Amino acid sequence: MRDFSKDHSLLSLNTATVRKQGDLLAIIEACARHEIRAISPWRDQVATVGLDAAVKAVKANGLKLSGYCRGGMFPADAAHRAAARDDNRRAVDEAVAFGAACLVLVVGGLPHYARPGSAISHDLGAARQQVEDGIGELLDYARTAAMPLAIEPLHPMYAADRACVNTLEQSLDICDRLDPGRTGALGVACDVYHVWWDPNLYRDIIRAGRERLLAFHVCDWLVPTRDLLNDRGMMGDGVIEIAKIRQAVEAQGFEGFSEVEIFSELDWWKRPMDEVLKTCIERHKSAV
């Protein structure tokens, strides 16, 4: 297990962590100031400042991208499937422009939530099939661009609206069916917030192996959790065995960044950006 206690060279900042404190260009400047070497930006933040300006700022400051957020939201009715396909191809193109390590996929839930305007459906099985079909189609496009796709399973509380793939096991089943040769083109993003509760977590980390482990995200689970989406905790403030999970991931050969991703409407989004980044660095050393 790598030693994070002496420096933060392997910390990556998911830019959602300070999305309320400034635009992407301001976040990039702050990361450079705090000697944070990598980020994972969100597409809406990129769109606000413009793709060209964002890519230029990343390169000018010598930053790497541990991932790019996000593609996915595959389920849709017939009238919206082409839009889903085209939007995901654009996400691949944007990730390529940044030289991202992978494009993270939040796969979507029921069609009317994944693609607003789609007809209402309660068929979760059909939604999961659309997810797999959509990933398979996107994989063909992503291979031509040499951009790995990372399926991120989300906690089951998001099954209806954000992701109907909720465990590493489900994600790996999709990977094995679509990429049986384990080519590195398709894998998983392991976010401790979403998987810490899973009784099969450590078994499935071993199953994933180095070829499938494309990204590793950290934060903490607060008790009580006051908001289902926007009340993640800073590492060390909750109940997740973060270091134990990282040890398991790294035992499989994962050598990438540990990406801090915190959605915190009630706490961290209210604090100054420099304070948040300093705390991320401190907790990355002590709690990750």
Rank of each mutant, 00 (worst) to 15 (best):
A150M: 04
D140W: 14
D86G: 15
A97F: 01
D123L: 09
N166E: 01
M157H: 15
A84D: 04
V131D: 00
G125H: 15
I120H: 11
N88I: 03
A146P: 11
V104K: 01
Y113A: 03
A145T: 12
S121H: 12
S121R: 03
A160V: 09
D140M: 13
A142R: 05
L149F: 05
L149M: 03
S66M: 05
P111L: 04
V104T: 06
Y158G: 02
P111G: 08
A160N: 11
D161K: 14
A146Y: 12
C69T: 11
V165T: 04
Y68A: 07
R128N: 05
G117D: 15
A97Y: 01
A95G: 14
A82Q: 15
L110H: 01
D123H: 08
D77C: 07
E132Y: 06
R85P: 08
A100S: 10
A101E: 10
P116H: 03
H155N: 08
H80R: 14
G67H: 01
E137Q: 14
A84P: 07
G72Y: 03
A101I: 09
G125D: 15
R143N: 13
D87N: 13
A91S: 13
T144W: 07
Y113M: 05
M73G: 10
H155D: 07
L149N: 07
D86R: 09
A159D: 06
A100I: 07
G109L: 01
V106G: 13
D123N: 14
M73I: 10
A84N: 10
R162Y: 06
F74K: 02
M73C: 14
S118G: 13
L139S: 15
E132F: 10
H112T: 14
G99W: 00
R90F: 05
H80L: 13
G109V: 03
E94F: 13
C102Q: 10
R89K: 09
C102E: 08
Y68V: 14
H122D: 13
F98H: 13
A127R: 00
A163S: 11
C102M: 12
Y113D: 03
L105V: 03
G125N: 15
L110Q: 02
P75G: 00
G99R: 01
F98A: 12
A160H: 09
G136A: 10
A119I: 02
Y141M: 03
A114T: 08
V165E: 01
S118C: 14
D133K: 10
A142F: 11
V96G: 09
C69H: 12
P116K: 02
Y158L: 09
L149Y: 06
H80S: 14
